[in-house]
Design a binder for these strands. Sequence first.
DNA 1: AACGTTATCGGTAACGTTTCCGACGGTTAG
DNA 2: CTAACCGTCGGAAACGTTACCGATAACGTT
Lengths: 336, 336
Amino acid sequence: MTIKDIARISGCAVSTVSRALNDHPDINAETKERICRIAKENNYSPNRNAKLLKQSSGKSMLIVVKGSANLFFTPILEQIQLFAAKKRLSVTVSYIKENDDEVLEAVRICDEQKPVGIIFLGGDVRNFRSGFELIHIPCVLCSAYAGELGFSNLSSVCIDDFSCGKAAADKLYALGHRKVGILSGDYKSSGPFEERFRGICTSLCGYVISDAEDFTEICEFSFKSAYENARKLIAKHSDMTAVIAMSDILAIGAARAFGDMGMKIPDDISVIGFDGLELAAFYTPRITTFHQPADKLAEIAVKMLIDMTEHNADAAHILLDADFVGGETIKERRVL
Amino acid sequence: MTIKDIARISGCAVSTVSRALNDHPDINAETKERICRIAKENNYSPNRNAKLLKQSSGKSMLIVVKGSANLFFTPILEQIQLFAAKKRLSVTVSYIKENDDEVLEAVRICDEQKPVGIIFLGGDVRNFRSGFELIHIPCVLCSAYAGELGFSNLSSVCIDDFSCGKAAADKLYALGHRKVGILSGDYKSSGPFEERFRGICTSLCGYVISDAEDFTEICEFSFKSAYENARKLIAKHSDMTAVIAMSDILAIGAARAFGDMGMKIPDDISVIGFDGLELAAFYTPRITTFHQPADKLAEIAVKMLIDMTEHNADAAHILLDADFVGGETIKERRVL
DNA sequence: AACGTTATCGGTAACGTTTCCGACGGTTAG
DNA sequence: CTAACCGTCGGAAACGTTACCGATAACGTT
């Protein structure tokens, strides 16, 4: 059932049918209605490929997820898909490993699929410079800041990671903690982690800043890796009274590790996380964390992308606030 | 950079270029190599839409995820994408709400995108009958059984949910538990939940089977809902000594609820889950559960789909084993 | 009455690719 | 020596759609 069939049945030309079906101006109202009715009766659906061949841009969106599927990206991905569906956009997802050149992969998919735009879920701005010039469609970097790059087709939306990092450290400082360990993803190649790290350092400046790296362990983004690195950290600094984990995932891995070592949270050690996953509120003990508004991030990412594609808006960079979520994992430093 | 440009540069006809690029037989070896070299030099990439317009079937796969993104489906989705990428298939994902007619949504996307096949992640066979006849491409139902339907284009792969349910109940029975509560998703509209429920009932037959439904609470698939329904369950049956949760998600929600009510796990109440999420091993206490091999499910789903599309294999239905994972949440019934 | 304007529509070229059909030279079989 | 054949290639139609251009008729304007 093609547009030609509809033309034959309705007795008009294919161009008229096309106009009727695409809300074009040059068409009589009743003709349009009649054609639409016939199309519906024969449940005609347009051939996407033919349409795209002409228009050379499709009604689909590409999501490139940096790293593996994790608990933080998952709800964002879902929300993006739902918002996109409302705009009649389909969502193609591609997971890329940390060591791949994500941009080249994105370029390849763009060549093939001609999406209207790309949303990068995670990923570091530093890895973008190299091949990003090859991408000429609107992009949004979600959950990381890309303002410093100055690409006119790259927007970004994220939380104020620096402030969160500082706030976390401030809290612990106010509770009397001085020896604070840090569990992070590789902050040297991840914008958000680096920002949080800088925020933490800014706060703790003066007493651990000089050896902040000594108090930091770099983990993979998994429970398991956090578990192992938490043990490393405590082995190195037995006088540590608190740990800042760059994500709730890492916080949970660490919490489990401390538990297995016979330490009580928060009595023996305080733990503070980031992201505010739903899980964090149901973990035992409840993780003290900073909640990222995942649905808002998703909504804004889609909105920015559409603004750029349809109303060719300029690239923009939006910073959202994260909310502190009091849990059961921080406490005043026990005076020994 | 189109096939025409390559033809012009190489001095051959477009048809020759097409043959060279697509491993067709009627072409001279060195001509082919020369054309391929030129294509690579000018980094030509074929226009997917033009190709699909001719072939009317695309190199993409559709994943329909039933319900929201949850911790169980997420790793499967990721694995599917990775396996699909190896076969040069892109993955389009669509989340559908429980109350939607997932099949109709899939039909719509099929009309537009012409994917080579569909993998349904979750979803109940009972909701398939209605409109499934409209789908004429290979499909795989992942994590639920579809053998009873007899559709020639629908394969399925899942674990032996009945046996798991029975094994779980048997374990608790052997530990002396007699009053066993059940936290389930809506097992009347979910194959896996129903199978597990039937397995549990088969085991506990004789002492609670007559009022199994009385010992069961139906939850949404979330921590929060499990939390609330666990409280309901304990309010109704204060003499309950164990709970079987149909998923680790529900088990964790329940565990948190029991903790908040001052009950100790497993001393006061035993909890057993399903799915064997990574999270379950890092929860405190570690959840006793049955591990589903997510990567194997994904791999087989993709493999089945490709077997059907490329070698038009018959529909098949594969049952995998789930492994018992001993945790810290079950214990002998305390004799009062 | 001649003309310009407007609303509506049809014809058709393109989009980039695949594939069928035929052509051509060279080889082999009868 | 002719006919059949094979390997290799070019030409052109087709896939379903959109968009441009031109045509027609009805209408108002001078």
